[in-house]
Design a protein around this nucleic acid. Structure first.
Length: 290
DNA sequence: ATTGAGTCCTGAAGGC
DNA sequence: TGCCTTCAGGACTCAA
């Protein structure tokens, strides 16, 4: 799925087109994605003007002029494109020429269309209001933003203390840090030279205080996310920026997808290995990640 | 309370 | 060519 950098890239691509624009027509082409669409989905959006496009974790939040908030999640394979701006590759859209996985089309007054496409349908959309947004079931229990000021050694140590789960699963847990996914957890742990199989409790002292590992890990998490955003996200099988162009951070992966290839740490003679944790592939160097 | 397994769905890639 | 298996960026529910 798009992880935080990809969602943020899409947000930045959509913002200039969507904010200030009025939704003239909504084409909802099926009854559900991961969940059913809310009642009167299209009707509640039609005629509304978008006043703000925000992101929380991997969710896009479109605030409308009547207080409604459209919540969008892209799941594993969700993409958003803008007609007239597609430039590269397979994901250029011509107006009226629908793909079978184009599930929602927002037509703006300008004639531009915002197209949500999601083959696997692990994504979702819902409607709520600005005042009940924080209490929404999808958002109520998610953790802090990794790029914000809340990700501190103290926070991480407090949640890691006593945890027997491994570092990989711990960092993927959206209730602790929201927005990290499989790729960026692998990459952050590589940079921090931490073995993904270590117990999460290694990030805290016995009294739940931060240690050297905790303090070292945090800048690596922030750096890898910020660098990925700078690069316009990572393009794998099914992710492209909102304007259809492709991010290029995937060329900067040190371990993800590099099973059997040499470790990129200078002077390390290790080879990248893959194993499975919590049902997900983990890539790491067994020599320099300890 | 935590943790791991199973689940949703489609498509791409690789082996034979 | 085709048939089969495996894997994929997420995250929920359920049972131990």
């Amino acid at each position: 799925m798009p992880e935080l950098p990809e969602v943020e890239t899409i947000r930045r691509g959509l913002e200039p087109v969507l904010v200030g624009a009025r939704i003239e027509r909504v084409e909802q082409r099926r009854a559900d994605l991961r969940f059913p669409f809310p009642e009167n989905f299209g009707k509640r959006l039609t005629g509304r003007k978008v006043v703000m496009l925000a992101r929380r974790a991997k969710y896009l939040l479109a605030h409308l002029d009547d207080g409604t908030v459209l919540i969008i999640h892209l799941g594993m394979s969700g993409r958003i494109s803008i007609t007239g701006q597609g430039q590269l590759g397979e994901f250029t859209h011509n107006q009226g020429n629908r793909d079978i996985h184009d599930h929602v089309v927002l037509r703006l007054e300008s004639g531009t269309e915002i197209i949500y496409n999601d083959p696997r349908r692990f994504g979702m959309m819902d409607l709520t209001t600005g005042t009940s947004l924080a209490a929404h079931p999808l958002l109520a229990n998610i953790g802090i933003e990794p790029l914000g000021p809340d990700l501190t050694p103290e926070y991480l140590a407090r949640h890691a203390a006593g945890r027997r789960t491994n570092l990989k699963s711990f960092l993927l847990d959206q209730r602790i840090i929201a927005g990290l996914g499989n790729i960026y957890v692998c990459e952050a742990l590589f940079r921090a030279r931490l073995n993904p199989s270590r117990a999460a409790a290694c990030l805290a002292t016995s009294t739940g205080k931060p240690n050297a590992r905790t303090s070292a890990l945090i800048p690596h998490i922030k750096d890898v996310l910020n660098e990925a955003i700078q690069a316009g996200g990572s393009t794998l099988k099914d992710y492209a920026q909102a304007d259809g162009s492709l991010g290029y951070f995937q060329h900067s992966f040190h371990v993800y997808g590099r099973e059997g290839e040499p470790c990129l740490t200078p002077a390390c003679r290790g080879m990248v290995r893959r194993n499975v944790q919590a049902g997900r592939s983990t890539f790491f160097c067994p020599i320099c990640q300890r």
